[in-house]
Nucleic acid binder design. Structure first.
Lengths: 342, 342
DNA sequence: TTGAAAGCGATACCAC
DNA sequence: GTGGTATCGCTTTCAA
């Protein structure tokens, strides 16, 4: 009898708590209590239960537990493009922190498209994500409405407007851009081109503002262009480099803009870095792999990820003090790509 | 009465199907059928239901549906390190494909640690992942046992031993490495150093093998070293470059090894690429951003991701023909970092 | 054409 | 100390 049951149970690839209880000859309540330590269970039964679990290779069905507990243990992470190293760096660290708190990360890559973002966020909400970490693809993303309606804790990272009412983790974009611009100005550059991504994003707007402030305070003028892709940056910058009175320095406001600008520089044939300097936001590993090593503004990726996670965790544990707004500091890293103009 | 109910319902941030049914004055079955089109519902009731859904901002609880359907709609993606662009490229494409089939991706970053990998995979199984796409951190990962015991469809990508019995998607590592080595040999290099990652991984072993075959067929000799990190590659390569009879060419078998080797090259002060050539596996965007542009073996990242996804999808739909083994082709991309030896 | 109700698997309250 | 059982929210069969 009993052995027949065992046979059958071994065959079942997905045993349930009832299979375990039956084999161990106890109630499901007892199995659950052994597993979760919810209440005391006598040593004899403990062993019976553990043996049965072992025998069956039982793995509790988290879906069922989640439904019951009204907590999915899932956090949604929404980014505009996961292949950008800034975002994959943040993802990597957050995933690690989440795993250590027994949370899972569902990734949603919006591909910079608001409608995709909306669909993906809705899917996350349907899946009962307990919380969201979001790098919205636009500041006034309509998804924010969905999120606040469902009262899902959410933390905005990197982007996101000031008024949104959500917790947000950002860097001191304006000050950092100012420092980068100062560096170029101190080297003697008078004609600087800033290559910005979408300026309707608050973080980009702040960088532009910081840049312009530095330029203005020295009574210099400068030009700012906005591009939406590496390819567009390439074409725009190339055009400018080939036109008369070209800039002697470029400030790329994102890694993508740096890639586009660099290609344009090489294509233009201008001697780099002796005849044109470049500094870029985001300090990536590759920037010290080939020449010239790139001067950068380093964002504290780990710090951003950790702050975002701990902020979300606090919200999940329901400490809803006022809205959190963290602003982390960037660092200027001077390398070879910025030189005095000739 | 009715309006009181509405009031209350509006306040509830997470209405259930019963709230909807109640407001619409129909049964939950009808609501479900309207939502899923499972069976015909009269137009009048249709409208009642839709209005109620709209009014409440109802979003079905996927957890409950999953429990009932015994399908979570979640796929686990396990990678050794998401910050490596090869993996984030694959993730990006798979996430897109998954979303378009209404699946969600839970990301597990094993950080190249087998015990972390095991824990993360177990968590995925508890969460009832319907399937797994796995780049195991070692070929004979013990997790494979857990997975086959639970009979979860799984596809191995990039790595994973031949005997494992799982579907697997790989590239023609051996042929590609051979082509890369041929390129160097044809340029006239006689003293080549291959910098490999962990050689106990089958894909790396295949690359080494292809490399050595090419070298042997020309009756040349070559050296192969194995490093586990960028830093180790840096130190090892630097040592070799500083020793007598140094190589005239380096073949980096992964992006990480390329990063380490490049730093060592610059540090050694050897003229690059005129006095030392370098070719690398993995064609990354940065390799054409600074100088010299790097010659590479390009892996078909999109093709890998798409093949992995479609293979998994077929398994999920239960077409268990024999085991699938796909092998995609790599491309040799010649740029500036490989030159004739002096 | 529609509603009532039995589950999916785990948890925790109420009994004993 | 332990067991029975209602419940989480949704789907689907059975009955009407």
């Amino acid at each position: 009898m009993k052995s027949a049951k065992r046979q059958q149970a071994i065959i079942n690839p997905r045993p349930t708590i009832r299979d375990v209880a039956e084999i161990a000859g106890v109630s499901t309540a007892t199995v659950s209590n052994v597993l979760r330590g919810t209440r005391f269970v006598g040593p004899a039964r403990q062993k019976l239960v553990r043996d049965a679990i072992e025998l069956l290779g039982y793995n509790p069905n988290w879906l069922a537990a989640s439904l019951r507990a009204r907590r999915s243990g899932v956090i949604g992470l929404v980014v505009p493009d996961i292949t950008i190293s800034f975002f994959s760096g943040i993802l990597s660290r957050i995933e690690e922190l989440a795993a250590s708190s027994n949370y899972q990360i569902i990734l949603a890559d919006a591909q910079e498209k608001p409608e995709r973002e909306r669909d993906r966020v809705r899917a996350l909400l349907r899946r009962q994500a307990d919380g969201l970490i979001l790098v919205p693809c636009s500041d006034h993303s309509e998804v924010l409405g969905d999120i606040s309606r469902q009262k899902v804790p959410a933390v905005l990272v990197d982007r996101g407007s000031a008024e949104s009412g959500f917790d947000s983790i950002q860097v001191d974009n304006s000050a950092a851009a100012q420092a980068g611009a100062e560096h170029l100005l101190q080297l003697g550059h008078r004609n600087i081109l800033a290559v910005a991504a979408n300026p309707s994003l608050q973080n980009i707007a702040q960088r532009i503002e910081g840049f312009q402030e530095a330029v203005k305070s020295r009574r210099r003028t400068a030009r700012v262009i906005s591009c939406i892709s590496v390819a567009e940056a390439y074409w725009e910058v190339l055009g400018i480099l080939r036109a008369p009175s070209r800039p002697t320095a470029i400030f790329a406001l994102t890694e993508q803009m740096a890639l586009g600008s660099l290609r344009a520089i090489w294509e233009s044939g201008i001697e780099f870095p002796s005849a044109i300097s470049l500094i870029a936001f985001d300090d990536c590993e590759w920037m010290t792999a080939l020449r010239p090593f790139v001067s950068t503004i380093r964002q504290p990726i780990h710090g951003i990820a950790e702050t975002a996670w701990s902020t979300l965790l606090k919200r999940l544990q329901g400490r809803p003090r006022g809205r959190v707004r963290e602003e982390l500091k960037c660092t200027l890293v001077i390398r070879e790509s910025t030189t005095r103009p000739r």
